[in-house]
Simulated scan of single mutants.
Amino acid sequence: MHSQPTTLLKKLVAKIKPFKNVKVAYSGGVDSSVVAFAAQEALGNDSIAVTVDSEFLSRNNLLAACVGAEQASLNHKIIDHHATRDDIIRFNTAMRCYYCKKSIFSTIGGTVIDGSNADDPADRPGFLAANEAGVISPLRDIGASKDDVRMLAKHLGLYSADTPADSCLATRIPTGTAITGDLLEKIEAVETILLNNGAIWCRARPCGKKLLLEYGQDFTPRAPEAIKAVMENSLLKDFQVIESPNGVIKR
C-alpha cells in the first residue's frame, strides 16, 4: 500500500503523461474517478472522461457520474450504447461481460484507460476484453490497491470517495437468463426503492417469480418498510416470493 496520497498521485500522473490523448472509461465509481482526475492533471483537455450510457447503467449511477465529473471539473462526455441490441450480450452466457466490455471499448475508441486496480482479479472475462483491446490500467500498473484508491480519493475530496462498490444491472441476472429491458427496469425499480429508503448499497436479483434482495446489516431495521413498498409496486407484481436478510415473504 502506498503510504502517501501525494506520492500515489504523482506516480499515476507520470504513468499517464506519455500518452498524447486518452479517453477514460468513467463510470463515476471511485476507481475511474481517481484515474479520470489524474488523467486530466497529466493531459488537461487531451483527456476525456467517457461515460457509456446503456440499459445496464442505472439512472442513479449515471447521475452520480455526472455530479462527480462536475465536482472534479472533468472534461466529461456521455455516449449511448445499446447493449441489448447485440444478441451475444443479450443471451447472457458466462462470457457476457467479455462481449459487453469488448463492445464498450470499441464504442469509446482511441486510447482507452480504465480504473482496474491491483486488487481486481485478472481472470475475469471483462479483463480479457480489456487486454485484447489494448486498454491501459494505470492503477494496476503502479500496484495501487483498492485501499490506495480510496485514500487518494478522500485526499482529493472526490465525490465518489466513500461510494460503495457497484456493478452494472446485468450482473443481477442469472447466467443463461436472457437480458431484457423489462427485467432491467424491474431490477432498477427495486433497488431505487431500497436506496430511497436509506440503503447504502443493495442488489435485487430476480430468479423467475422469486426476487432475492441483498443489503447491509445497517439497513435491516428499515428494510420491512422498503420491502412493503416493493410488494405494493404494480411494476413488480410478478414477483411472488421476496427473499431477503429479513426473511421470506410470499404473496
Rank of each mutant, 00 (worst) to 15 (best):
K186Y: 03
N61G: 08
D162Q: 13
K17A: 13
R96I: 08
D119S: 12
N233L: 12
R90D: 06
A229E: 03
G115P: 05
A229N: 03
N92D: 09
S244T: 04
K15S: 13
G176T: 12
E232P: 03
F37I: 01
Y98M: 07
N45A: 15
P221Q: 08
L156M: 13
Q240H: 14
T6W: 00
Y99L: 02
V22Q: 01
T180L: 07
V190E: 01
L156C: 13
I48F: 06
T175R: 11
I187D: 03
L128M: 08
F239A: 06
D120K: 05
D123R: 10
D162S: 14
F37V: 04
V112C: 09
A36K: 00
A83D: 10
T6H: 08
G134N: 08
E232G: 04
I193L: 01
S106W: 00
S167T: 14
A130D: 10
N246I: 00
V135E: 04
G176N: 10
V149R: 10
L156D: 14
C168H: 12
E55I: 00
A65Q: 08
Y98N: 08
K15R: 09
I88Q: 14
S167L: 12
Q4R: 09
A189Y: 00
N61V: 06
I108F: 07
K209G: 09
A144C: 10
G110H: 01
D141G: 13
H155D: 12
Y215H: 02
R172F: 12
N45D: 14
S73R: 15
S54M: 11
V22M: 07
R59F: 14
N92K: 05
C100A: 02
S106R: 13
R172N: 11
L158A: 13
P125G: 08
P221R: 01
R150F: 14
N21Y: 02
N60K: 14
A153M: 10
G134T: 05
E55Q: 11
P206R: 06
V67N: 08
S27R: 02
E185D: 12
Q217C: 10
D120T: 04
L158M: 13
K77E: 15
T51Q: 06
Q71K: 14
A161Q: 14
N196Y: 04
F219P: 02
I173R: 02
N131T: 08
I173E: 09
L9F: 04
T177V: 15
D166M: 13
K210M: 15
G115T: 06
A64C: 11
S244R: 01
F105Y: 14
A223H: 02
L213P: 01
V13M: 07
I48S: 07
P224G: 11
Y26H: 03
L8A: 06
D53K: 15
H81A: 12
S234F: 02
R90A: 15
T220D: 13
N233H: 07
L139N: 07
Q217R: 11
Q240R: 10
K20S: 13
P164D: 15
L211E: 09
A72G: 09
V34M: 05
E214I: 05
I89P: 04
R203N: 10
P174I: 02
E232F: 03
E41C: 11
A204Q: 00
I78Y: 01
A38G: 07
G198S: 07
F19Y: 12
G44N: 05
Q217K: 14
M95F: 05
G109Y: 03
T107R: 12
M1Q: 04
F56I: 11
L212W: 02
F127R: 03
F56T: 09
D238I: 00
I88H: 12
D162W: 10
A83I: 01
A165D: 15
V248T: 11
